[in-house]
């Protein structure tokens, strides 16, 4: 008897759950249209049914991460992204540091995207899609950008090598040897006899 009660109770719960799920699904699929007088006040719905922006879905697709539930984690993640984005209407200032209206709106957009579960890289690439790589304060280490990282090191090492190389060379090697010295006639024929005399006096000729 006990056993049968348990079984029927379980069946009842399962049936109730099924009805609940099915009715919810039906409700979700068939949203009753708003009356025209309400539509006239509210206008059309703000965006697609899932609450995501069509422009963002077109650019990024679906969010890669689960929707964050905690406001503090959304703020922290948004702030970390705003530091890496350049404010397009300022001069070399991060979105996080700019008081301009556009930067404020960009911070709002970042927060919206993070709150919907878009990953940092997705958010960055959303802004990059419209503003280009310029919007990233740190250009990614790829392609020609690699030169930005490699070239200063190469120039520094090259300079150090050059200085050391010069320092090690004996001084005499850099002095002009007698053989290389220009002849008086080659410099100025008029000076030839004076040079000849100086050399004779000095005993070098």
């Amino acid at each position: 008897m006990k056993h049968t009660i348990r079984k029927s109770t379980l069946r009842g719960i399962a049936a109730a759950a099924l009805v609940f799920v099915a009715s919810n699904a039906a409700l979700a699929q068939e949203k009753p249209p708003l009356p025209p007088e309400v539509m006239a006040i509210l206008g059309e719905p703000e965006g697609p049914a899932d609450g995501l922006d069509a422009a963002v879905i077109g650019a990024l697709g679906q969010p890669e991460e689960p929707v964050p539930t905690n406001d503090a984690s959304i703020d922290a993640k948004s702030a970390a992204i705003a530091v890496k984005l350049r404010c397009p209407v300022c001069q070399g200032v991060a979105v996080s540091d700019s008081p301009s209206g556009m930067a404020v709106k960009m911070r709002g957009q970042i927060r919206d995207l993070v709150a919907q579960g878009y990953s940092e890289e997705q958010v960055m690439s959303y802004f990059e899609r419209s503003y280009g790589e310029f919007v990233r304060l740190e250009p990614p280490m790829q392609g020609l950008n690699l030169l930005l990282w490699i070239l200063p090191g190469v120039v520094l090492l090259g300079g150090a090598w050059f200085v050391l190389h010069q320092a090690r060379r004996p001084i005499t090697a850099t002095a002009v040897s007698q053989a290389d010295a220009p002849t008086a006639a080659a410099v100025d024929p008029a000076l030839a006899k004076y040079l000849e005399r100086i050399r004779r006096d000095a005993g070098t000729s």
């Binding site: 709106k105 709002g108 899609r129």
Partner: peptide, 9 residues
């Protein structure tokens, strides 16, 4: 909210 301006860069 500046979303159109941002989307158009």
């Amino acid at each position: 909210d500046g979303k159109a301006a941002i989307a158009f860069g």
